[in-house]
Design a protein around this nucleic acid. Structure first.
Lengths: 207, 207
DNA sequence: ACCCCTTTGTTGGAAAACAAACATACTTGT
DNA sequence: ACAAGTATGTTTGTTTTCCAACAAAGGGGT
């Protein structure tokens, strides 16, 4: 596309850049929205939290990736999650309704964009599938190994970084940080993996 | 749409009806597919299972609803789930690639169908969100109550049926059937709910 | 009505996670 | 270099789940 076309589309979708400070809320559970977010810089967390401090991290969204598309694309839906900036971040907010309802200008690119939206949504479902795979495991150890091995496969190496610190990983896997930490130590002692900070090396089970 | 138009579209998407016996597999984890399924009659379960008999039910799909769209819409993806007939069922298989790649006949309805696909996918993400909400809860009791109250809200009544039997509910919530059964008894004794078979009545917490 | 088979409820010991507290790095700012 | 704050690892009771086995209830077919 030419710059002009991109500008037209951005205007079509009512695009606006928002600068968010660390820990600022972009969406709050209970609200509804027509906009989806695209992370330009920094990162955001998609979370659920209750009044007792339990925080469930559904995903960390990095630059180039979207969030909130499903709520924006479902009229009448109410956000079941909140989105907070994990660090200072720039977010491009895009109105999905403007994309889905044929616009007056009848952008020839609308259809292409909608197909892209299909890819984004399908990818999100697959991502959710794999999160469900991990947290459905019954023990902390299995959840850890399920997550790490899928990350290892996804990144195509046995040594890789994960986007979470310990507390965040525990919140992502829905387990106690302390129990997880203990389990990681065990796995180290057994030689199944090695880790320092957010860097992991899987060794596989010795025969 | 006229019958003729519908027929054209069905042909476009390589539509075929499959009759499945109870317990027959429609998709197996590890396969890939260009087709999504539409349940015409009966019902199917979207599951993950391991070699030790643990079965995680991701969803029960009833007539009028789809399954497999996300894998079909993501070229190169591999099924992370299996789909089995929960009872004798008729399934309409639709080729999503034919829908996404502009067809030679250039069906004028393609765009409309793709928008519908967006809705279906967005709805699926929301459904997954709520499943994650339930199984992220730390105790069996909380998982049960999270699921039941969301079903109650969704159906708009305090008395409602759920689509699962006890074993299936346990598999959906990723807990032990026996522990769940015990917890349900407790909740009954405490007067928080009542249940017989798959019918539930929520009473709320007595003040 | 009877038997068989499936579903649901109950129990008890073993194992695991939870929660809170503390110890030990590791950062960050000054 | 220091101090304060944060992140990570460790430990200890307590609570809960898991698992296996059994009991009770319900359904279907003959």
């Amino acid at each position: 596309m030419t710059d002009q076309e991109i500008l037209t589309i951005l205007h079509c979708m009512d695009a606006r850049v928002k600068k968010m400070d660390r820990n600022a809320y972009i969406f709050r559970a209970g609200e509804s929205t027509e906009h989806m977010g695209l992370v330009l810089s920094g990162s955001v967390l998609v979370i659920q939290e209750d009044l007792w401090g339990h925080r469930n991290i559904l995903a960390k969204v990095l630059p180039g990736d979207f969030f909130g598309e499903s709520y924006a694309a479902t009229p009448g839906s109410v956000l079941n999650v909140s989105v907070v900036a994990n660090e200072d971040a720039e977010i491009l907010m895009l109105n999905v309704n403007h994309l889905l309802t044929t616009c007056k200008n009848s952008c020839t690119h609308h259809n292409h964009l909608i197909r892209n939206l299909v890819s984004v949504l399908a990818g999100k479902v697959l991502q959710w599938d794999s999160k469900i795979t991990h947290i459905s495991k019954r023990s902390t150890r299995e959840k850890i190994l399920s997550y790490l091995s899928s990350e290892s496969i996804r990144q195509g190496k046995l040594a890789f970084d994960i986007p979470y610190d310990r507390q965040q990983l525990a919140d992502y896997l829905s387990v106690e940080r302390s129990a997880m930490s203990a389990e990681l130590s065990k796995l180290k002692k057994e030689g199944i993996l090695d880790t320092q900070k957010n860097h992991f090396v899987l060794r596989g089970i010795p025969e």
